[in-house]
Design a protein around this nucleic acid. Structure first.
Lengths: 123, 123
DNA sequence: CGTGACCATTTACGCATGTAAACATAAATA
DNA sequence: TATTTATGTTTACATGCGTAAATGGTCACG
């Protein structure tokens, strides 16, 4: 079971901080996405059904906590894209962005540092 | 207007070689995806409506040619993911795969070469 | 000329999604 | 206690997708 993009926007709020009430979630995601209450409630219910979040009663309301971690989600999504578009290999993906001139100075510096680290681990 | 995953599978055939007839496309994509004729025809029609392919009559049949290029598609898809999950920056994405130990020797070598190239362009 | 073969176009159908209204329920308050 | 308020649950509805069957048109052949 995978979660949709709208559902992921709700998860994002919970990944930043949890547990949260529906109201808090709405306050944080509503304006940006132009969603109203009902929309967020529906999304929360679908996430519950998919077991991506857990709800714990707290008086009249519920506190929602993520079960699916951001790491898991990012993993699924990016592996999916990588496999579909780049034969599962990372280098071609980076090459793609490079050709597209989408590598910032900062990206390049960080990549260099990353490779250095990998080198260091090596020995 | 974005094309779906099934539609992209059809495009893939056309990106490899074009123009092609529906029959040829079916022959190439059918077995792998377990699709029959009707399925491919429908997908082709949706691609036509989305102006992702062009069809040119050739006697009784049509020859299909891609209008949307693979580059454009890859661009959209990967930019989407990058923005949604990594704040639009490439380095965090690579770091993610690195943590996940999803960087092969070959990847690392290629990345190194790539950075080298960028260096060379620099001066 | 009628009929079948060959393609393409149209229609269908169940399921997910985005979006939300309607409904239910329980607590708070008049 | 009757009513309002707060919150969650159910239902809705249009659109897109995956998958394909039904229909339609046109050329070839009997």
């Amino acid at each position: 079971m995978s979660i949709s993009e709208a559902e992921a926007a709700v998860m994002d709020v919970l990944w930043r901080e949890a547990p949260r009430t529906a109201e808090e979630i709405l306050a944080e995601v509503g304006p940006a996405q132009n969603w109203q209450e009902g929309t967020v409630k529906s999304l929360l219910n679908r996430l519950l059904r998919k077991k991506a979040v857990h709800a714990e009663r707290d008086g009249r309301r519920y506190l929602y906590t993520p079960l699916l971690t951001r790491e898991q989600y990012v993993q699924q999504e990016s592996k999916g894209l990588l496999d579909r578009l780049f034969g599962g290999r990372v280098a071609p993906l980076v090459a793609h962005f490079s050709e597209q001139r989408k590598l910032s100075k900062k990206d390049i510096a960080e990549l260099r540092r990353l490779l250095q680290e990998l080198d260091d681990e090596q020995h």
